[in-house]
């Protein structure tokens, strides 16, 4: 692995990997199928009214 090839990799793979990773995260986070689970998770740490002893 010469220095120039590594630098070329750094400049290109980095960007491709960034955009790909970002797209995957957005799709998984905002997919409608997970909406219900996420809303439930957000409330999970709050004491539900019924088990507030």
């Amino acid at each position: 692995m010469t220095h120039d090839s590594l630098v070329y990799l750094s400049k290109t793979v980095g960007l491709v990997w960034l955009v790909g990773f970002f797209v995957i995260v957005i799709l998984r986070a905002y997919s409608p199928s997970r909406r219900k689970a996420h809303d439930a998770a957000a409330r999970s740490i709050l004491p539900e009214p019924e088990d507030r002893e």
Binding site: R34, R35, D39
Partner: peptide
């Protein structure tokens, strides 16, 4: 913050992003 304010996070999905 959610526990003390008694309110769920504004956008759970945004926290994942």
């Amino acid at each position: 913050l959610p526990v003390r304010s008694g309110r769920p996070i504004w956008s759970y999905r945004l926290s994942i992003v």
